[in-house]
Design a binder for these strands. Structure first.
Lengths: 261, 261
DNA sequence: TGCCGCCCTGACCCAGCGTCAAGGTCAAGC
DNA sequence: GCTTGACCTTGACGCTGGGTCAGGGCGGCA
């Protein structure tokens, strides 16, 4: 008769594993000797080897129990199921490999390549780290929420920073990075923003396009982006208030305020 | 400010996952409002999205923590490590697929194809299920212990059952399947076995090959196989005793008894 | 005021064992 | 006969990445 460690050695598993299989009901508990030790016969080695062969083929232990006593057709079905699962797991890993490869090459963690290009262009044009950071974070959020539309919005953004007057507005925003709520430049900035917005609205009206809906993100996302903006620049909250005084609300999706009657 | 469920919705994860990341230290615990609710800013969404991007690329959460704040070289190293792990896991799954494919095709669970052929041949030659079963179990054990030598031993076995006198001996052994310890045919059987063994030994002596060591399995395996034999046929224990009286010990590795002086 | 939905913490659950912990047993050497 | 070291027993906690209660505290709406 064999002790548990001898049994385990014959089957090439650990003692702990054998006890685990007992607990799971894969291997029947053998007789005990007078001191309570488990005593195994050769048949137990055969059973244990069969368990390990299935387990080594990637069969989960819960199915091993069924399969040990399965007839051919159920066995074949189970094998198909397991093969499907293995294929799915392999595909999953392969997708993971592609993703981390992209993370490694694209230096920047969560951004599509066009966004990386945009941020680089911002740096070239003299934007500082504060504004680049908030833009990066914004694009991380946009890419996470509406990955398919990043391209569209990115094109708009690119056009904006290449448009010189608008770029100067942005640069001025950045130069105010550390100003306070009552900075006298804030009302002035609000005025300049309104000029831009109204000019754009007039052009849109002239072209009879109205406010192009396609260029608006969802309200929830717009609100989130506005929050991120306000978290980075505390004075932005005040700026939004000043804009509301001038009849405009929001920032990402800035729109004319509908006054309460 | 966002509640935990809003945060989770923005990042496409569950509330439970967010709390899990807090517990793991991946995402800093935010301020609480006066009623103890967590309140998040937009920056938390960005952090959470970054966590998910890494996690979705198969990075274990424990490494995500390091990677979030890693500089480029460590990041690159970590990516290489993770890619290695993913490749290893894919290879593992592919081997699992091959193995279960073989299990499915080879009908018989733990046997190499030559063993399956051998068992089929036994059935053709009129051996019954009892003997085929013990042979199957024996070959499961042999294949598990010394897979590389199965071919060698299998060849011997094939030759043995094709040798007619020996085959008849085996068939007679099976016909005694249910006999008792004191069956009169047992001593007779023992005599016949000894005749065979001594003839084989004489031939070996004549050819000056001695007992061919290559054809012997390890003592431990031989003992295990003998045990399996005795478990299947209770009278086999008695047979081994009778053989010892006749100067031979063991069954799988039967050898001349060295008498105590 | 009651109800519904959201929030909180704490705790158990899954696989497949590894790894103590605390104590009983066995064989061998002195 | 005593000690030592190896081996046996059960029980419990650990890992990953959360899911899923349970029990109780809030918030806003009719």
């Amino acid at each position: 008769m064999l002790t548990i460690s001898q049994l385990a050695a014959y089957a090439g598993v650990t003692v702990r594993a054998v006890r685990h299989y007992h607990a799971k009901g894969l291997l029947p508990e053998p007789e005990r000797d007078q001191s309570g030790y488990r005593r195994y016969g050769a048949a137990a080695v055969v059973e244990l080897v069969r368990i390990r062969i299935l387990a080594d083929a990637g069969v989960p232990l819960s199915r091993v129990r069924e399969l040990l006593s399965a007839a051919d057709p159920e066995f074949a079905q189970a094998v198909r199921d397991i093969d499907l699962r293995l294929r799915a797991e392999i595909r999953e890993r392969q997708q993971h490999r592609e993703r981390i490869a992209r993370l490694a090459s694209g230096e920047s963690l969560a951004l599509p390549p066009e966004a990386v290009a945009y941020l680089d262009r911002m740096r070239e044009l003299g934007f500082g780290e504060r504004l680049v950071d908030i833009e990066r974070d914004s694009w991380i959020l946009i890419a996470a929420q509406i990955p398919d539309e990043v391209g569209t919005f990115m094109a708009i953004k690119h056009a904006q920073i290449e448009h010189e007057p608008l770029r100067r507005l942005y640069l001025d925003i950045e130069s105010m990075a550390d100003c306070t709520h009552d900075d006298p430049r804030l009302p002035e900035l609000a005025d300049r923003v309104v000029v831009f917005i109204e000019a754009a609205a007039a052009v849109a009206h002239e072209l009879e396009t109205g406010v192009p809906e396609d260029y608006q993100v969802s309200d929830a996302l717009a609100h989130l982006l506005d929050s991120a903006f306000c978290e980075t620049f505390p004075w932005a909250t005040r700026l939004l208030e000043l804009l509301e005084e001038r009849g405009w609300t929001g920032w990402t999706n800035i729109r004319r305020l509908t006054l309460p009657t």
